[in-house]
Amino acid sequence: MPVRHSVIHKIDKKPDGSPAVLFLGAAEQVESQARDDLMSQLNENYNAATGKAWGFFHAESGAHPLSGWLSKYLAGRFDFFNFSVTAADHLTKLMEESNLTTGGHALFCHYQQGLTEYLVIALVQETEAVTMTEELSLLTVKRLDLDHIRLAARINLSEWKNNPQSKQYISYLKGKQGRKLNDYFRDFIGCQEGIDGPGETRTLLKAFSDFVESEDLPEESAREKTHTLVSYSMAQAKLGEPITLDELSGLIDEDRPKNFYDFIKAKDYGLSEALPPDKKTLNKFRRFTGRAEGMSISFEAHLLGDKIEFDEAGGTLTLRGLPTQLTEQLKRASS
Protein backbone atom coordinates (compact mmCIF):
# COMPACT_ATOMS: atom_id res chain seq x y z
CA MET A 1 0.00 0.00 0.00
CA PRO A 2 2.34 2.79 -1.19
CA VAL A 3 1.41 6.13 0.39
CA ARG A 4 1.86 8.99 -2.05
CA HIS A 5 0.86 11.86 0.22
CA SER A 6 -0.60 12.21 3.70
CA VAL A 7 -1.43 15.18 5.92
CA ILE A 8 -2.97 15.45 9.39
CA HIS A 9 -4.67 18.61 10.71
CA LYS A 10 -6.62 19.09 13.93
CA ILE A 11 -10.01 20.71 14.48
CA ASP A 12 -10.73 21.72 18.04
CA LYS A 13 -14.47 21.94 18.69
CA LYS A 14 -15.63 21.89 22.30
CA PRO A 15 -19.19 21.28 23.52
CA ASP A 16 -19.34 24.68 25.28
CA GLY A 17 -20.44 26.49 22.12
CA SER A 18 -17.06 28.08 21.42
CA PRO A 19 -16.05 28.39 17.74
CA ALA A 20 -14.27 25.54 15.98
CA VAL A 21 -10.55 26.21 15.62
CA LEU A 22 -8.39 24.66 12.91
CA PHE A 23 -4.77 23.81 13.76
CA LEU A 24 -2.86 23.10 10.56
CA GLY A 25 -0.10 20.57 10.25
CA ALA A 26 3.19 22.23 9.31
CA ALA A 27 3.68 20.05 6.23
CA GLU A 28 2.94 16.64 4.77
CA GLN A 29 3.78 13.65 6.93
CA VAL A 30 7.31 12.58 6.10
CA GLU A 31 7.90 9.10 4.77
CA SER A 32 8.39 6.73 7.69
CA GLN A 33 7.36 3.32 8.93
CA ALA A 34 5.12 4.99 11.53
CA ARG A 35 3.27 6.93 8.84
CA ASP A 36 2.83 3.86 6.64
CA ASP A 37 1.68 1.73 9.59
CA LEU A 38 -0.83 4.39 10.61
CA MET A 39 -2.33 4.68 7.14
CA SER A 40 -2.36 0.91 6.68
CA GLN A 41 -4.25 0.46 9.95
CA LEU A 42 -6.67 3.22 8.96
CA ASN A 43 -7.32 1.43 5.67
CA GLU A 44 -7.80 -1.97 7.33
CA ASN A 45 -10.19 -0.61 9.94
CA TYR A 46 -12.14 1.27 7.30
CA ASN A 47 -12.51 -1.91 5.23
CA ALA A 48 -13.66 -3.81 8.31
CA ALA A 49 -16.26 -1.22 9.30
CA THR A 50 -19.92 -2.06 8.71
CA GLY A 51 -22.67 0.35 7.73
CA LYS A 52 -21.11 1.83 4.59
CA ALA A 53 -22.89 3.60 1.76
CA TRP A 54 -21.71 4.15 -1.81
CA GLY A 55 -22.20 7.10 -4.07
CA PHE A 56 -20.75 9.68 -6.43
CA PHE A 57 -20.01 13.40 -6.52
CA HIS A 58 -22.61 16.10 -6.85
CA ALA A 59 -21.81 18.54 -9.62
CA GLU A 60 -19.17 20.96 -8.41
CA SER A 61 -20.69 24.06 -6.82
CA GLY A 62 -20.24 26.49 -3.96
CA ALA A 63 -22.11 24.05 -1.74
CA HIS A 64 -20.01 21.08 -2.95
CA PRO A 65 -16.53 22.36 -3.83
CA LEU A 66 -14.36 19.38 -2.84
CA SER A 67 -14.48 17.63 -6.22
CA GLY A 68 -13.23 20.79 -7.91
CA TRP A 69 -10.28 21.13 -5.53
CA LEU A 70 -9.53 17.44 -5.96
CA SER A 71 -9.57 17.78 -9.76
CA LYS A 72 -7.07 20.65 -9.54
CA TYR A 73 -4.79 18.59 -7.32
CA LEU A 74 -4.89 15.60 -9.67
CA ALA A 75 -4.21 17.91 -12.62
CA GLY A 76 -1.11 19.27 -10.86
CA ARG A 77 -2.55 22.75 -10.29
CA PHE A 78 -2.73 22.26 -6.52
CA ASP A 79 -0.21 20.42 -4.33
CA PHE A 80 -1.57 17.89 -1.84
CA PHE A 81 -0.79 19.93 1.25
CA ASN A 82 -2.66 23.00 -0.01
CA PHE A 83 -5.53 20.78 -1.13
CA SER A 84 -5.78 19.37 2.41
CA VAL A 85 -5.60 22.85 3.98
CA THR A 86 -8.42 24.15 1.77
CA ALA A 87 -10.53 21.06 2.45
CA ALA A 88 -9.89 21.14 6.22
CA ASP A 89 -10.86 24.80 6.37
CA HIS A 90 -14.13 23.99 4.58
CA LEU A 91 -14.76 21.08 6.96
CA THR A 92 -14.20 23.37 9.95
CA LYS A 93 -16.73 25.90 8.63
CA LEU A 94 -19.32 23.21 8.02
CA MET A 95 -18.75 21.85 11.51
CA GLU A 96 -19.32 25.31 12.94
CA GLU A 97 -22.46 25.95 10.85
CA SER A 98 -23.89 22.58 11.83
CA ASN A 99 -23.27 23.37 15.52
CA LEU A 100 -21.70 19.94 15.97
CA THR A 101 -19.35 19.32 18.86
CA THR A 102 -17.27 16.59 17.26
CA GLY A 103 -13.80 17.86 16.40
CA GLY A 104 -10.82 15.61 15.86
CA HIS A 105 -7.82 14.99 13.66
CA ALA A 106 -8.57 15.36 9.95
CA LEU A 107 -6.53 12.75 8.07
CA PHE A 108 -5.99 13.06 4.32
CA CYS A 109 -4.16 10.26 2.52
CA HIS A 110 -3.57 9.60 -1.18
CA TYR A 111 -2.38 6.02 -1.60
CA GLN A 112 -2.23 3.22 -4.12
CA GLN A 113 -3.38 -0.38 -3.75
CA GLY A 114 -2.47 -2.56 -6.69
CA LEU A 115 -3.21 -0.48 -9.77
CA THR A 116 -5.93 1.55 -8.07
CA GLU A 117 -5.44 4.97 -6.48
CA TYR A 118 -7.52 6.14 -3.53
CA LEU A 119 -8.04 9.20 -1.41
CA VAL A 120 -9.25 8.60 2.14
CA ILE A 121 -10.44 11.40 4.41
CA ALA A 122 -11.26 10.63 8.02
CA LEU A 123 -12.03 12.55 11.19
CA VAL A 124 -10.34 10.61 13.98
CA GLN A 125 -10.66 11.14 17.73
CA GLU A 126 -7.96 10.77 20.36
CA THR A 127 -7.97 8.21 23.14
CA GLU A 128 -5.64 7.39 26.00
CA ALA A 129 -3.30 4.42 26.10
CA VAL A 130 -0.85 3.10 28.65
CA THR A 131 2.75 2.42 27.65
CA MET A 132 5.90 1.32 29.44
CA THR A 133 9.00 3.50 29.69
CA GLU A 134 12.54 2.19 29.51
CA GLU A 135 12.64 2.52 33.30
CA LEU A 136 9.65 0.14 33.47
CA SER A 137 7.30 2.88 34.62
CA LEU A 138 3.76 3.20 33.30
CA LEU A 139 3.00 6.25 31.21
CA THR A 140 -0.35 7.43 29.91
CA VAL A 141 -0.19 8.80 26.36
CA LYS A 142 -2.72 9.97 23.80
CA ARG A 143 -3.11 8.12 20.52
CA LEU A 144 -5.33 8.30 17.46
CA ASP A 145 -8.33 6.03 18.00
CA LEU A 146 -8.37 4.17 14.68
CA ASP A 147 -10.48 1.38 16.20
CA HIS A 148 -13.54 3.62 16.45
CA ILE A 149 -13.67 5.73 13.29
CA ARG A 150 -17.05 7.45 12.99
CA LEU A 151 -16.60 9.79 10.03
CA ALA A 152 -14.64 8.72 6.98
CA ALA A 153 -14.92 8.50 3.22
CA ARG A 154 -12.82 6.88 0.52
CA ILE A 155 -12.75 7.99 -3.11
CA ASN A 156 -11.63 5.55 -5.78
CA LEU A 157 -9.67 8.05 -7.86
CA SER A 158 -9.01 5.57 -10.66
CA GLU A 159 -12.69 4.71 -11.00
CA TRP A 160 -13.69 8.38 -10.91
CA LYS A 161 -11.20 9.19 -13.66
CA ASN A 162 -11.80 6.18 -15.91
CA ASN A 163 -15.53 5.63 -15.35
CA PRO A 164 -17.09 8.99 -14.44
CA GLN A 165 -20.60 7.58 -14.99
CA SER A 166 -20.13 5.16 -12.09
CA LYS A 167 -22.37 5.66 -9.08
CA GLN A 168 -20.14 3.89 -6.56
CA TYR A 169 -16.64 5.36 -6.70
CA ILE A 170 -17.12 6.94 -3.26
CA SER A 171 -17.78 4.96 -0.10
CA TYR A 172 -18.44 6.51 3.29
CA LEU A 173 -19.32 5.37 6.77
CA LYS A 174 -22.98 5.53 7.58
CA GLY A 175 -22.90 4.59 11.24
CA LYS A 176 -25.20 5.06 14.20
CA GLN A 177 -23.86 8.44 15.35
CA GLY A 178 -26.90 10.27 14.06
CA ARG A 179 -28.24 11.42 10.74
CA LYS A 180 -27.22 15.05 11.24
CA LEU A 181 -23.58 14.13 11.77
CA ASN A 182 -23.60 11.73 8.80
CA ASP A 183 -25.24 14.30 6.53
CA TYR A 184 -22.82 17.08 7.38
CA PHE A 185 -19.79 14.91 6.57
CA ARG A 186 -21.40 13.63 3.38
CA ASP A 187 -22.10 17.24 2.38
CA PHE A 188 -18.44 18.05 3.04
CA ILE A 189 -17.40 15.29 0.62
CA GLY A 190 -20.08 16.46 -1.82
CA CYS A 191 -21.41 12.95 -2.21
CA GLN A 192 -24.85 11.70 -3.15
CA GLU A 193 -25.90 8.12 -2.51
CA GLY A 194 -25.80 6.00 -5.65
CA ILE A 195 -25.68 2.27 -4.94
CA ASP A 196 -27.64 0.63 -2.13
CA GLY A 197 -25.02 -1.85 -0.87
CA PRO A 198 -27.28 -3.88 1.45
CA GLY A 199 -30.07 -3.90 -1.15
CA GLU A 200 -27.74 -4.99 -3.96
CA THR A 201 -26.26 -7.72 -1.75
CA ARG A 202 -29.74 -8.98 -0.82
CA THR A 203 -30.69 -9.06 -4.50
CA LEU A 204 -27.53 -11.01 -5.34
CA LEU A 205 -28.30 -13.56 -2.62
CA LYS A 206 -31.91 -13.86 -3.87
CA ALA A 207 -30.59 -14.45 -7.40
CA PHE A 208 -28.23 -17.10 -6.07
CA SER A 209 -31.03 -18.89 -4.18
CA ASP A 210 -33.16 -18.87 -7.34
CA PHE A 211 -30.18 -20.18 -9.32
CA VAL A 212 -29.59 -23.07 -6.90
CA GLU A 213 -33.28 -23.96 -7.04
CA SER A 214 -33.40 -23.82 -10.85
CA GLU A 215 -30.33 -26.05 -11.15
CA ASP A 216 -31.83 -28.61 -8.73
CA LEU A 217 -28.39 -29.09 -7.22
CA PRO A 218 -27.52 -31.86 -4.78
CA GLU A 219 -27.27 -30.58 -1.22
CA GLU A 220 -23.48 -30.95 -1.02
CA SER A 221 -23.00 -29.01 -4.26
CA ALA A 222 -25.40 -26.26 -3.12
CA ARG A 223 -23.52 -25.98 0.16
CA GLU A 224 -20.16 -25.72 -1.62
CA LYS A 225 -21.39 -23.02 -3.97
CA THR A 226 -22.90 -21.08 -1.05
CA HIS A 227 -19.56 -21.26 0.74
CA THR A 228 -17.78 -20.05 -2.41
CA LEU A 229 -20.12 -17.07 -2.79
CA VAL A 230 -19.85 -15.98 0.84
CA SER A 231 -16.07 -16.53 1.05
CA TYR A 232 -15.40 -14.54 -2.12
CA SER A 233 -17.75 -11.73 -1.12
CA MET A 234 -16.26 -11.47 2.38
CA ALA A 235 -12.74 -11.42 0.94
CA GLN A 236 -13.74 -8.55 -1.37
CA ALA A 237 -15.26 -6.69 1.58
CA LYS A 238 -12.03 -7.12 3.54
CA LEU A 239 -10.05 -5.66 0.63
CA GLY A 240 -12.56 -2.85 0.15
CA GLU A 241 -13.25 -4.12 -3.37
CA PRO A 242 -16.60 -4.78 -5.12
CA ILE A 243 -18.14 -8.12 -6.00
CA THR A 244 -17.72 -8.64 -9.74
CA LEU A 245 -20.52 -10.77 -11.21
CA ASP A 246 -18.36 -12.23 -13.96
CA GLU A 247 -15.62 -13.25 -11.53
CA LEU A 248 -18.10 -14.66 -9.01
CA SER A 249 -19.82 -16.71 -11.72
CA GLY A 250 -16.52 -18.31 -12.69
CA LEU A 251 -15.78 -19.24 -9.09
CA ILE A 252 -19.23 -20.75 -8.50
CA ASP A 253 -19.00 -23.07 -11.52
CA GLU A 254 -15.53 -23.55 -12.98
CA ASP A 255 -16.82 -25.95 -15.66
CA ARG A 256 -19.47 -23.45 -16.82
CA PRO A 257 -18.03 -20.09 -15.72
CA LYS A 258 -20.76 -18.00 -17.39
CA ASN A 259 -23.67 -20.05 -16.09
CA PHE A 260 -24.60 -17.97 -13.02
CA TYR A 261 -23.81 -14.71 -14.83
CA ASP A 262 -26.11 -15.64 -17.74
CA PHE A 263 -28.84 -16.68 -15.29
CA ILE A 264 -28.71 -13.26 -13.60
CA LYS A 265 -28.87 -11.41 -16.92
CA ALA A 266 -31.66 -13.61 -18.30
CA LYS A 267 -33.83 -13.06 -15.22
CA ASP A 268 -33.09 -9.30 -15.22
CA TYR A 269 -32.44 -8.80 -11.51
CA GLY A 270 -31.14 -5.31 -12.24
CA LEU A 271 -27.78 -5.94 -10.58
CA SER A 272 -24.74 -3.85 -11.40
CA GLU A 273 -21.77 -5.59 -13.03
CA ALA A 274 -19.84 -4.76 -9.85
CA LEU A 275 -21.54 -4.20 -6.52
CA PRO A 276 -20.32 -3.33 -3.02
CA PRO A 277 -20.58 -6.26 -0.59
CA ASP A 278 -22.48 -5.65 2.64
CA LYS A 279 -20.93 -7.79 5.37
CA LYS A 280 -23.91 -7.61 7.71
CA THR A 281 -26.18 -9.06 5.02
CA LEU A 282 -23.61 -11.70 4.05
CA ASN A 283 -23.18 -12.81 7.66
CA LYS A 284 -26.83 -13.81 7.75
CA PHE A 285 -26.53 -15.93 4.61
CA ARG A 286 -25.73 -19.49 5.56
CA ARG A 287 -27.52 -22.79 5.11
CA PHE A 288 -29.33 -24.84 7.71
CA THR A 289 -29.32 -28.53 6.79
CA GLY A 290 -30.51 -31.79 8.31
CA ARG A 291 -31.33 -35.38 7.36
CA ALA A 292 -33.42 -37.95 9.25
CA GLU A 293 -35.48 -41.02 8.28
CA GLY A 294 -35.67 -40.36 4.56
CA MET A 295 -36.18 -36.61 5.02
CA SER A 296 -33.68 -33.98 3.89
CA ILE A 297 -34.17 -30.28 4.73
CA SER A 298 -31.96 -27.42 3.62
CA PHE A 299 -32.55 -23.68 3.39
CA GLU A 300 -30.73 -20.36 3.62
CA ALA A 301 -30.76 -18.68 7.01
CA HIS A 302 -32.22 -15.45 5.67
CA LEU A 303 -35.50 -17.28 4.91
CA LEU A 304 -36.03 -17.98 8.60
CA GLY A 305 -38.81 -15.75 9.87
CA ASP A 306 -39.94 -14.98 6.32
CA LYS A 307 -40.83 -18.04 4.27
CA ILE A 308 -39.92 -20.43 7.05
CA GLU A 309 -41.04 -20.32 10.69
CA PHE A 310 -39.56 -22.46 13.45
CA ASP A 311 -41.64 -23.48 16.45
CA GLU A 312 -39.03 -24.44 19.02
CA ALA A 313 -41.56 -25.77 21.54
CA GLY A 314 -43.30 -28.00 19.00
CA GLY A 315 -40.18 -28.85 17.02
CA THR A 316 -41.86 -27.96 13.72
CA LEU A 317 -41.12 -25.90 10.62
CA THR A 318 -43.81 -24.05 8.69
CA LEU A 319 -42.92 -23.49 5.02
CA ARG A 320 -44.39 -20.91 2.64
CA GLY A 321 -43.77 -20.39 -1.05
CA LEU A 322 -42.85 -24.00 -1.87
CA PRO A 323 -40.91 -24.64 -5.09
CA THR A 324 -43.23 -25.23 -8.03
CA GLN A 325 -41.63 -28.58 -8.84
CA LEU A 326 -42.22 -29.82 -5.28
CA THR A 327 -45.79 -28.51 -5.26
CA GLU A 328 -46.62 -30.38 -8.49
CA GLN A 329 -45.16 -33.60 -7.09
CA LEU A 330 -47.24 -33.27 -3.95
CA LYS A 331 -50.40 -32.61 -5.96
CA ARG A 332 -49.85 -35.71 -8.06
CA ALA A 333 -49.14 -37.81 -4.96
CA SER A 334 -52.35 -36.67 -3.23
CA SER A 335 -54.64 -37.14 -6.24
Rank of each mutant, 00 (worst) to 15 (best):
G76E: 00
I8W: 04
F108T: 00
P164Y: 07
Y232I: 01
V21D: 03
D268W: 12
L229V: 06
V120G: 01
M95H: 01
I264H: 03
D262Q: 15
L322M: 01
G62L: 01
G240E: 07
W69Y: 02
L245M: 00
E309L: 10
I297G: 07
E273I: 09
E31V: 15
F310P: 08
T226M: 06
L303K: 03
A88M: 02
Q33W: 14
L144H: 07
D268V: 15
K167H: 08
T102W: 12
V141T: 06
L119Q: 00
P242H: 13
F299V: 09
G51E: 12
F78Q: 15
Q329G: 01
K206F: 12
F188M: 10
G178H: 02
L74Y: 03
F78Y: 14
G55C: 03
D147C: 09
G315R: 04
H90Y: 10
F81P: 11
F288G: 12
D216C: 10
P65V: 02
M1W: 14
Y73A: 14
S137R: 13
G104A: 06
S171D: 06
M295F: 15
P276I: 13
K307Y: 00
I195G: 03
L157I: 01
P323M: 00
S67M: 08
T101A: 13
E220D: 07
Y232Q: 05
F57I: 08
G314F: 08
F263W: 06
D262P: 01
T203S: 10
Q165E: 14
G294Y: 02
L239I: 06
N283G: 10
I11V: 06
P218E: 01
T133D: 05
A75T: 14
N47I: 06
E159M: 03
L204I: 13
G197R: 11
I170D: 05
K225S: 06
L275I: 08
T127R: 04
A122C: 10
G25R: 09
T116W: 00
E213V: 07
L248D: 09
E97S: 12
Y73I: 13
S233N: 00
Y46N: 01
L317R: 00
P15D: 09
L173H: 02
